[in-house]
Amino acid sequence: MSMVAGIIALAVLALAFGLLLGFAAVRFRVEKDPIVEQIDSLLPQTQCGQCGYPGCRPYAEAIANGDDINKCPPGGQSTIEQLADLMGREAKPLDDAHGVEDVKKVAYIREDECIGCTKCIQACPVDAILGATKQMHTVIADECTGCDLCVEPCPVDCIDMIELQQGPERWKWDLEQIPVTQLATEVKS
């Protein structure tokens, strides 16, 4: 008797909860996962493609779908750590198959040598190069993300990636890097 009672009780309970879950599944359906947006906002938006995806957003989508978070050299370790935080994963060192972290650079066109082919203009993902066909091109340094995508297409090799000039305002207190030898002989005793 107790056996039958147990079986019936459990079955009825299960039925009730099943109905409840069915109801909840329809009623509280979650529409879309905004995680891609959050990832995208952490990426440096250089659009350099070093991660193997055409742009930052595709990479963000890939991360959301489980790709590794250590494929973004421009973002460097700090971006990896932020991504690790966001995704609840472990921060790994940058995968150097995708390149290495570098100082911030901007593209610079040696204007004497530019032949005005516009190839770099087409290569620039953020439209930071000014110029027109057969006219000398120039890089808007403030808009340049330093992705260096313009370097390779240049037929005359007139684009350099130069280190971003930093003034005292943006100095990062790296005391060891001050060139102390400069003008050192000025003091005569």
Partner: peptide, 12 residues
Amino acid sequence: VKKVERARVTSA
């Protein structure tokens, strides 16, 4: 030592 092909964001 593997090298991953870099994707081009733009046509070049």
